[in-house]
Amino acid sequence: MSGSILYLHGFCSSPASWKAQLVAQAMNARGLADRYYCPVLPPIPRAAIATAEAIIGSQPGPLTLVGSSLGGFYATWLAEKYDLRAVLINPVVLASIAPGTFVGTQTNFHTGQSFEFTPQHVAQLAALEVPRITPERYLLMVETGDELLDYRRAVAHYAGCHQMILDGGDHSFTRFPDLLPQLLEFCGL
């Protein structure tokens, strides 16, 4: 049985993101559209984790997480809890971000819907922080030109895992299409 992918989009993003769409197209081209999951993650961290856990709990076979930005942060917590592999694309390393960074009114890039992110939500994120990872379960993909997150924090936090560090780019991970074959290979597809 082929594996499945659970794609976790970033903060203020959605399944309509271009990376999520590229993975969906690749899975469809392989005849595996029914093994690709990309839910709308609620902006509240506990609710986002619950959404992902419902999908993880329904999987009979192998599942690999793919997380972008905040989705990479969630994927790390889920990978450690459920003994899963994960591909992390410019992931958030919470310890390197000022606690109030996300607090306030936020707007989803794709839907235009606004939501309030509170200090309580920041506390929920802090409760999901994984101080030590199991390196062999991860593939880290970062671009040095990420304007939102310091890629060096991810490189240090995920030391020992397979890392693809590309010069330039930005937070959207501009060379994602070029690395999609490596992502799918890591996922066992």
Score class of each variant (00 low, 15 high):
Met1Tyr: 15
Ser2Phe: 09
Gly3Gln: 05
Ser4Ile: 12
Ile5Asn: 05
Leu6Gln: 04
His9Val: 02
His9Ser: 04
Gly10Gln: 07
Phe11Gly: 03
Ser14Val: 08
Ser14Trp: 04
Ala16Leu: 13
Ser17Asn: 13
Ser17Cys: 05
Lys19Asn: 01
Leu22Gly: 04
Val23Lys: 00
Ala24Lys: 10
Ala26Met: 00
Ala29Pro: 05
Ala33Arg: 12
Ala33His: 04
Ala33Pro: 00
Asp34Phe: 12
Asp34Glu: 15
Cys38Ala: 15
Leu41Pro: 00
Pro42Leu: 09
Pro42Gly: 03
Pro42Gln: 10
Pro43Thr: 07
Ile44Val: 15
Ile44Arg: 11
Arg46Asn: 14
Ala48Tyr: 01
Ile49Pro: 06
Ala52Arg: 00
Ala52Cys: 05
Ala52Asn: 01
Ala52His: 00
Glu53Met: 05
Ala54Asp: 02
Ala54Met: 03
Gly57Val: 03
Gly57Ala: 06
Ser58Glu: 07
Gln59Tyr: 12
Pro60Asp: 13
Pro60Phe: 03
Leu63Met: 05
Thr64Cys: 11
Gly67Phe: 06
Ser69Val: 01
Gly71Glu: 03
Thr76Glu: 08
Trp77Leu: 10
Ala79Leu: 04
Ala79His: 07
Glu80Met: 01
Lys81Trp: 02
Tyr82Asn: 07
Tyr82Pro: 06
Leu84Trp: 13
Leu84Ile: 06
Leu84Val: 04
Leu84Gln: 09
Val87Ala: 00
Ile89Ser: 00
Ile89Lys: 01
Asn90Leu: 10
Val92Cys: 04
Ala95Ile: 03
Ser96Ile: 02
Ala98Cys: 00
Ala98Ser: 13
Ala98Trp: 12
Ala98Ile: 09
Phe102Arg: 09
Val103Ile: 15
Val103Met: 13
Thr105Asn: 14
Thr107Gln: 14
Asn108Met: 08
Phe109Gln: 05
Gly112Glu: 13
Gln113Met: 12
Gln113Pro: 03
Phe115Gly: 10
Phe115Thr: 08
Val122Met: 10
Val122Ser: 03
Ala123Asp: 02
Gln124His: 01
Leu125Val: 15
Ala126Asn: 12
Ala127Ser: 12
Ala127Phe: 01
Glu129Ser: 14
Pro131Tyr: 11
Arg132Gly: 12
Arg132Trp: 09
Thr134Gly: 14
Thr134Tyr: 10
Thr134Lys: 15
Glu136Tyr: 04
Tyr138His: 09
Val142Gly: 04
Glu143Lys: 11
Glu147Trp: 14
Leu148Met: 14
Leu149Gly: 12
Asp150Asn: 11
Tyr151Ile: 02
Ala156Gly: 07
His157Gly: 09
Ala159Phe: 09
Gly160Ser: 13
Met164Leu: 15
Ile165Met: 13
Gly169Met: 07
Gly169His: 01
Asp170Ser: 15
His171Thr: 06
His171Asn: 06
Phe173Ile: 09
Arg175Tyr: 05
Pro177Met: 03
Pro177Leu: 04
Asp178Glu: 14
Leu179Pro: 00
Pro181Ala: 13
Gln182Arg: 13
Leu184Ala: 04
Leu184Thr: 06
Glu185Val: 12
Glu185Gln: 11
Glu185Phe: 06
Phe186Gly: 07
Cys187Gly: 02
Cys187Gln: 06
